[in-house]
Simulated scan of single mutants.
Amino acid sequence: MSHTAHIPSHRKPRRSAPKTALRAGVAGGVLSTIAVAGAAGPAQAEPVTRTIEMPTITDGLSTAVAASAQATEQVAQDLRTQAQQDEAAASAAKAAKKAKAEAVRKAEAKKKAEAAAKAKAEAALRASRTQARTTLSAPTGGSPASTAVATSSSSSSSSSSSSSSATGSAASVVSFVKAQVGDAYVSGGTGPNSWDCSGLVQAAFRTVGVDLPRVSQAQSTAGTQVSLSNLQPGDILYWGGAGSAYHVAVYVGGGEFVGAQNSSTGVVQRSLSYDPPSGAVRVL
């Protein structure tokens, strides 16, 4: 016997033909299917490479910084705006205060100017009366006209004492003007507590139903011209020329008159010698 006769054979047993054929057919079918699928499938596209930029931590930080800077700028702008508004308000208040002070100053200046003008006008009136009185009483070398004026003035003083009693309407006029003595003088005044010269005369004659003109110039020609030596109570005295008189009063008898003289004296009762008139006119 061979020395290997009892050693089992290590050769693999042969597969049966049917199994081998089946396996071969399956393998072939699989390979053919893969081949056919590979041939029939679409061509593979080139791979697309896309870079995705991933956010980093610095992106969020820069956004926060930008927002903070914008907020800071807005606060600064608001502060600047408020400061401008405050400055504008302060300037407006300062301008208003200055304008008010200027208005007060102008008002005071106007008031002083009006007072000065009034004082000047009164001074001019007194001066004109003084000049007229001086002209009437000054001697002119014995001329007939000056002699007549002097004679008239002297005789009026003597005759006036005998004509001191008023009757009828004249008495009412005299009583009215005497009742106003002490009232104030106001240019353009027509009563009841302040008068100018022609306003007082007009009101006095209105009490007896006589409507005189308003101004002294017209009142000096409202009736019959009479001599100063023949005065009667109720006659209208005037200073200046007839038709251009600058002052009037009422003769009340006894060599006296009542008139609204000026703002310093008001309505007074004075002697004819205090301010001799230029002429007289009789209405009643």
Rank of each mutant, 00 (worst) to 15 (best):
V75P: 01
S158C: 08
Q217K: 02
Q74N: 15
Q70N: 14
T140P: 03
P192H: 03
S159C: 09
S172K: 06
V36T: 11
G254A: 10
Q44K: 11
Q217W: 00
A27T: 10
G240E: 00
S229C: 04
M1R: 10
R270S: 13
A103H: 11
V75S: 10
R126C: 09
A218Y: 05
A109E: 14
S227C: 07
A116W: 04
N193M: 09
R50K: 12
A249V: 04
T51D: 11
A171R: 02
N230Y: 04
Q131H: 13
L200E: 00
A90F: 07
N193C: 06
D86Q: 12
A101F: 08
R23Y: 13
N230H: 11
V268C: 06
S229W: 02
R11C: 13
E114R: 11
A132G: 06
A116Q: 08
A92R: 09
D275T: 06
A170Y: 02
S154R: 13
V26K: 05
Q217R: 01
G259E: 07
Q74E: 15
S128C: 07
H3M: 14
R129H: 12
Q74S: 13
A92D: 09
S165D: 11
D78W: 04
A103E: 15
G38V: 11
V210E: 04
V174C: 02
L212S: 06
V174E: 02
E102C: 06
Q131L: 14
V215P: 00
G255Y: 06
F205A: 01
V149F: 02
P144E: 12
T134V: 13
T221F: 01
K94I: 13
C197K: 01
L79F: 14
A170P: 01
S163F: 07
T51V: 13
L31E: 03
G254R: 05
K110L: 13
R11H: 14
D86F: 07
V281P: 02
Q77N: 15
F176V: 02
L22A: 14
T167S: 12
Q82I: 08
G259N: 06
A107W: 05
A21K: 10
Y251S: 01
R80D: 15
E73K: 15
A127D: 10
D78S: 11
F176K: 01
S164H: 08
S9R: 11
S264W: 09
Q202T: 06
